[in-house]
Design a protein around this nucleic acid. Structure first.
Length: 255
DNA sequence: ATGGCAGGCGCAGCCTGA
């Protein structure tokens, strides 16, 4: 079983690239973030032609998430139950016996801002909910755009970016707290290239210079950890014509 | 230190992203 996550920065713009990518990488599950589409505009027919069913949850202009799956997705939940959020950031479903949570964590703008406070509250709510889900679904994958780096190895210039957004100790605390629920960073289960990132700024030739951050993560539960076979960042896709600023991340499980 | 690029909205220029 292969699962992937990709922040596409507008599915309206990126639909051709997503379909091409699925044809070249026929994963079982693809979690999308930043679809930026209201639910009535979701391109489910085009995705069905490519062989994928879809569950989606969007809004106008910003955010928006989806799960594209080869088999049926059941027990679908949108956003975090009990957490009042007007932004469409999470979609969860059971696929082939695995509980899959696709999430677009808040950006947070900068420490000390209202958006940063929202990010902290949001991450706490997510953690409480993932804890509940893990209790009933030992086989669980939490993947998406976390907008948080684990440590300096995830940052192209940790000195320049020390304590800036995505790199603060408060954010990293929340990321480690998610892991502490009984999850593992699939990326670090395997040898990886030096300076592996999942996002590069559109500006200043950042991709060409490999000035990036690893902020898109796939966390897998303890029950799935022994079944993990591979985890790769699909860096070549960032070289696409009209690319998203994020690259897809793929995990392969022996399921 | 700042802005640079991209997308949405909507038709100029601002907001947001990361």
């Amino acid at each position: 079983m292969q699962l992937a996550t990709w922040n596409v920065n507008s599915l309206a713009v990126r639909l051709p690239q997503v379909i091409d990518w699925l044809l070249a990488h026929p994963v079982d599950v693809l979690a999308l973030q930043e679809t930026k589409l209201t639910d009535d505009k979701f391109p489910h027919a085009a995705l069905a032609e490519a062989g994928y069913r879809a569950q989606w949850y969007g809004q106008k202009t910003y955010n928006g998430v989806a799960l594209l799956t080869r088999s049926e997705a059941t027990d679908v939940v949108r956003n975090i139950p009990g957490f009042d959020d007007e932004l469409a950031r999470v979609i969860t479903a059971t696929v082939d016996g695995v509980r899959v949570i696709g999430a677009y964590m808040p950006n947070g703008q900068a420490p000390g801002t209202d958006k940063f406070d929202y990010k902290m509250h949001w991450l706490k709510a997510l953690r409480d909910w993932v804890r509940e889900e893990l209790a009933t679904h030992p086989k669980l994958v939490l993947m998406g755009d976390y907008n948080i780096t684990f440590d300096d190895a995830d940052v192209w210039d940790p000195v320049l970016l020390k304590d800036t957004i995505h790199c603060t100790e408060e954010e990293r605390y929340h990321l480690r707290a998610l892991v502490a629920l009984g999850l593992a960073d699939a990326h670090r289960l395997f040898p990886q290239p030096e300076k592996s990132y999942s996002w590069w700024d559109y500006r200043d030739f950042a991709f060409r210079r490999n000035r990036g951050l690893r902020i898109d993560h796939i966390l897998i539960s303890e029950a799935l950890k022994p079944l993990a076979r591979r985890c790769v960042i699909d860096k070549p896709t960032r070289k696409n014509e009209r690319p998203s600023d994020h690259a897809p991340v793929i995990v392969e499980l022996d399921l």
